[in-house]
Design a protein around this nucleic acid. Structure first.
Length: 358
DNA sequence: TCTGGGGTCCTAGGACCC
DNA sequence: TCTGGGGTCCTAGGACCC
């Protein structure tokens, strides 16, 4: 038994979206279930979640549905049903908040940090798993750590349905020889740039020269990567309510658009939805962004800062002026519209559960 | 193989002000 | 007449997360 101290637990539902669908459709249990897009594998869309049966056959998140269908021709394809997942997610988070002494920081539909003070974090983890299962019939994995990063990484070793602890004492032993790509916050681009500096493993990044990292990645991100590789950073769970900075909509067109009139119509439709979302929060718009993906695959963004306003007509006109900068005649595969909102005075900056906070 | 949608934060470079 | 340097804001783009 440990002494009483603060612990970070990272709770992650197992194959959440697919599991919710199987609960609704019990006859799908044991089958390869793939959820993505509108559920039509001939469309341009990607896999949101694949069941373990589908994963065993090589289908995973982010894969184009067309590719998934080729790999598993007899898989069950289902459309994404956000509202259903949000409802189940709310139940899960309510269970977590009901744990005695728990501080809960939600990271997404299917995961959250839970801060507890205890001498037996494994017992708390098992209690959480049992409570979530009893309330929602869903299984989850729990990572235990002395920092947020270590708890988050630990969960991966617990999946599925398990519990795993990772602390300062064994972080180096467990993670040191692994590729930096396994760290949360390092993706393929940064991994490739690190490789050019001769850094391939977590241990190498943990002991890398900070000045060299700062030169390559900037004064904040460079040193932060080394800290990440040591498993360090924030160790307390922050339950400050989340305040969104942006609302946006994007659409990938099934057929590339070329005509200006088509683009303008699409932009107006998305803008209406975005402004509905903004209006629901009652906050003025202070900036606009347009994202374009030209075919075959090159992104461009245009942004503009505006005086704070809730005037939909004015915002729409301003956004359409940005859309007008799209290169005429070049096929457009994706259009995105983003509205940046004024932040309330009491919103703390930088507390959000993303990279900089760690 | 052919690449979603909704977010967050960081950086470089230019403009502008003092 | 010619010109330093710091601070801040904005834009555009990049990277990563779920």
């Amino acid at each position: 038994m440990d002494e009483v101290r603060d612990w970070v637990l990272h709770v992650d539902l197992d194959q959440f979206v697919a599991a919710v669908e199987v609960l609704r459709h019990p006859e799908l249990a044991g089958l390869p279930v793939i959820v993505g897009g509108r559920g039509d594998p001939t469309e341009r869309a990607v896999v949101s979640t694949a069941s373990y049966e589908a994963r065993q056959k090589g289908v995973g998140s982010g894969m184009p549905l067309k590719v998934a269908a080729r790999r598993i021709p007899d898989a069950v394809f289902l459309p994404v049903d956000r509202e259903a997942y949000e409802a189940v997610s709310a139940e899960v988070m309510a269970v977590l908040r009901a744990q005695p002494g728990a501080t809960v920081q939600v990271l997404g539909w299917d995961e959250a940090f839970v801060g507890v003070t205890t001498d037996d974090p494994e017992a708390v983890a098992r209690a959480i798993q049992a409570a979530v299962l009893a309330r929602t019939r869903l299984h989850c994995s729990v990572g235990i750590g002395d920092t947020l990063v270590r708890a988050k990484v630990a969960t991966g070793f617990g999946k599925p349905r398990g519990v795993f602890r990772l602390t300062r004492d064994d972080w180096g032993t467990v993670m040191g020889a692994r590729p930096v790509l396994e760290l949360w916050g390092i993706g393929s681009k940064v991994s490739a740039r690190l490789a050019k500096l001769g850094i391939g493993t977590v241990a190498e990044l943990a002991s890398a020269d900070l000045d060299a990292l700062a030169t390559e990645f900037g004064p904040r991100m460079g040193p932060w990567y080394a800290e990440l590789a040591r498993g360090e950073g924030a160790s307390s769970v922050d339950d400050t309510p989340f305040v969104a900075r942006n609302h946006s909509r994007e659409t990938t067109f099934q057929r590339d658009l070329v005509e200006t009139a088509d683009l303008e119509r699409a932009a107006r439709g998305m803008l209406d939805q975005v402004l509905d979302d903004v209006a629901a929060e009652g906050r003025p718009v202070v900036g606009l962004g347009v994202k374009v993906r030209y075919a075959p695959f090159s992104d461009k963004t245009f942004t503009r800062r505006i005086a704070a306003t809730s005037d939909r007509v004015a915002v729409t006109e301003e956004a359409l002026r940005l859309v007008a900068r799209i290169e005429p005649g070049r096929p457009v595969r994706l259009l995105g519209i983003r509205a940046e909102m004024a932040m309330p005075d009491d919103a703390r900056k930088g507390h959000t559960p993303t990279r900089s906070g760690w």
